[in-house]
């Protein structure tokens, strides 16, 4: 560090004495100052690590919370869509149709019946006339 030079005799003498007292510090004081400096240099490393650890912990907690929110569904809302959900109805009907074997047979029989009516030239039940 650059130092301003003293201008008066009082200033010069005061600095001279101060510098001499600094140079004349006893060994124990020097040793303790040295130890204090080493502690400071160790501390220089520690907070960085703990800061990163803190960020890591925070990120892990935030991820866990996000996953929990995404997976959580209110009670009573399993895989069945809510009533009145227009997107859910056609899928339900198709599923019910194919799940029920009798209904499939009924549809096939009805088709044959209507074809026979057409070939025989008979009016269909409930038709015009």
């Amino acid at each position: 560090m650059r130092r301003d030079e003293p201008r008066t005799e009082t200033e010069r003498r005061a600095r001279e004495l101060f510098d001499a007292s600094v140079e004349g510090l006893d060994a124990e004081t020097r040793s303790r100052l040295h130890r204090a400096r080493q502690s400071a240099l160790l501390v220089m490393e520690r907070p960085r690590r703990s800061r990163w650890q803190a960020w890591g912990t925070a990120a892990a907690l935030a991820s866990a919370a996000l996953v929990a929110v995404l997976l959580w569904r209110p009670p009573g809302q399993g895989v069945t869509p809510a009533a009145g959900d227009p997107a859910g109805e056609p899928a339900d009907e198709a599923l019910a149709l194919f799940a029920d074997g009798d209904d499939v047979d009924l549809v096939e029989n009805d088709l044959e019946f209507y074809r026979w009516l057409d070939e025989a030239g008979l009016p269909a039940a409930g038709g015009a006339g």
Partner: peptide, 15 residues
């Protein structure tokens, strides 16, 4: 750098 700086200033700071 910090070590050098503190070593240069510690005794004066103490006084």
């Amino acid at each position: 750098s910090l070590d050098r700086f503190l070593a240069g200033v510690e005794r004066r700071a103490f006084r």
